[in-house]
């Protein structure tokens, strides 16, 4: 049910262009953060965390891994809502 069905004026966030704009801004921010790699002094704890773009790659990969494996986990542990019948 959207704003229209309530007789409301559609909001800025309801428009698909806005969502696209937000996602594009995210890409731009991420690109800027990669460029920032050249402009600060690293002091890694170990060797691997000092490699180029480590945090960026790790953040993206870890997130995908978590979400996609949780989706798999659902096949194993998901039951209907009233499973425990309480």
């Amino acid at each position: 049910m959207s704003s229209d069905q309530h007789g409301e004026r559609p909001r800025w966030l309801d428009r698909p262009e806005t969502v696209t704009l937000i996602v594009h801004s995210l890409w731009v921010i991420c690109a800027a953060l990669v460029v920032a790699e050249f402009f600060y002094h690293k002091h890694p704890y170990f060797r691997f965390d000092g490699s180029f773009g480590f945090y960026a790659i790790f953040g993206f990969a870890a997130y995908c891994f978590i979400v996609l494996s949780a989706k798999r986990l659902r096949r194993l542990i998901k039951r209907e809502e009233g499973y425990y019948d309480e």
């Binding site: 995210l26 921010i29 991420c30 953060l33 920032a36 790699e37 945090y55 996609l68």
Partner: peptide, 20 residues
């Protein structure tokens, strides 16, 4: 270093959310 690396971790994770 802390600000940039933390932002990289978080924003790239957020990007992953947007992509997924």
């Amino acid at each position: 270093a802390h600000v940039i690396t933390q932002l990289q971790l978080l924003m790239f994770a957020a990007l992953a959310f947007a992509v997924l």
